[in-house]
Structure formats: C-alpha cells, structure tokens
Design a protein around this nucleic acid. Sequence first.
DNA 1: TTCGAAATTCAATGATCGTTGAATTAATCC
DNA 2: GGATTAATTCAACGATCATTGAATTTCGAA
Lengths: 122, 122
Amino acid sequence: MKPVFHPDIEDIAPADVFAALADPIRLGILVALSDVNEVDKARCSHFTAFASPSLLSYHFAKLREAGITRMRVEGTSRYLSIRREELNRRFPGLIDSVIETARRDPNLPRLGPEWLSGSVGA
Amino acid sequence: MKPVFHPDIEDIAPADVFAALADPIRLGILVALSDVNEVDKARCSHFTAFASPSLLSYHFAKLREAGITRMRVEGTSRYLSIRREELNRRFPGLIDSVIETARRDPNLPRLGPEWLSGSVGA
DNA sequence: TTCGAAATTCAATGATCGTTGAATTAATCC
DNA sequence: GGATTAATTCAACGATCATTGAATTTCGAA
C-alpha cells in the first residue's frame, strides 16, 4: 500500500554503492536478481534461505537505499529488481562488472536450480 | 625495513574489495594512484591534503589489506601503487570500472594539477 | 651521534554495522 | 469478523568503522 521510498539515482555517490555491496548476503541477492530479468519474478520471500525475514528486510533496505534495487508493492508481496538502466546511466558499466565479479564468488549464498530454470513463478 | 604484509589476491573476496571502496578518502587515493602509472611516483606524504598522517595510515592499510594497493618501503618513505595485473586476473574488468566511476565523482578529494602533469617527483 | 622527517601505532571517542527475536502492520482468504 | 501469510519495525547486542591526538618507530642527514 504505502509506496516504498526510492532515492533519486543522482543523489547516490559511488561510495554509497560500494558500501551496499560490501556484504555477502547482499551480493547473493544481487546475483540472484540478475538471473531473473523477466521483471517481477523475484519476491522477497524467495530469499528465505539466505537469512531470517527480519534480516532480509534489513538487507533489502540497504540495497534499495543505495539506489541499486527497486521494490514494487503488490498486495502483501514485494517484488525486487535491479535498477539497471538508471545505474548504467549514472555509473556506466559498473553494475555489470560488479555482478560478473560477484557471480564468480563461490562463497556467496545462492538460490536453488529451480531459480535459474525459471520455474519459480510457474 | 620490515616488509609490509600483502595478502594473496586469491584470499580476497569481492565483498572485501567493496568494503575497502566504501569511503571517499580511499576512493580519492585510488583515483590519484590511477593517474600515476609510472611506478613508484606516489609517496604516502603526497596525500596529506586528504587527511591527517595517522588517518592516512589507517586508510592506506585498508586498501592494502583488501588487496587493492601495494606498498614498497624505501628508507623512511613508502611508495603506493595499484595491484592492477593481479586484480584484473582475479576480478576481470572490475578495478577499471571502479576507477572510472570514482573519477567522475566531483566530491572526492583530489590532488592538485601538478599531480596530473607529472611534475611531482621532478 | 644527535636531529628531523616519514610514517605507523595506540588508546579513546562516537557512529554505524550485521544479527537476533519479539512485536507490529497490512493484505488476503475462509 | 478471525486466521493466515508477507514483510517490516523495534530494541537490543557486540563488532567494526572513521576520526583524533599523542607517543613511537625508523631511517637519513648534519
């Protein structure tokens, strides 16, 4: 109901982005989000394997307040996505090399294979 | 005299790198270092405009312990440089887009024009 | 061998961080 | 209406952070 606050991308400094990326759980979320580019496939509760609900809320807020993710409210659910176009306009090329770097880290939390196969919302 | 400790680049996780980048002073140092690729032009004391000596030491250590910079000891001086080759091997493309992103931030501390013109060690 | 410069170390501070668990809000379904 | 589900908020905790200033180490030069 209450629409979530999203900062103007112009108000984000590089150091803010890097601070938001300085956590394995958040990097795991970012990588998982980059795997579902069909918009609005990723609901918050899909990440329960990563951490407790309250801790997930905390990390979601960090990513959102750093301008990295967008959150769309629909009923009791929230759908997450990466703010790709805006990020690429403000920090050209950065988010892609960040994702590529994180994707290669074997120690990040990951979602199961049903995630990549796209059979989540099915 | 005592050679400074540098972590093996393989022991660095992406989140460690991003944590080290999550500070304007350290980003300013990184950008300045990327401007002098003639090796060993950058001495610690060149950055006194950024912060007090003791705070600089703290930030230099953060960058070094995250595998981003190398420190060569010579007499009472220390020379800093970016570990470009190793970083590019471990995180291909990352450091360049980070530097490019930081370089565009008008709010980072900067060195004077004599820095870019290469007339520092002259 | 003393002096001075370069840089680090140490102790202390207030702020923020990641995490926990319990309480709360909000929308849906019977 | 009441129960359920999705997610957030809040208070608390110990850990780490950025910063300060004073003391210390290390080397080169006079």
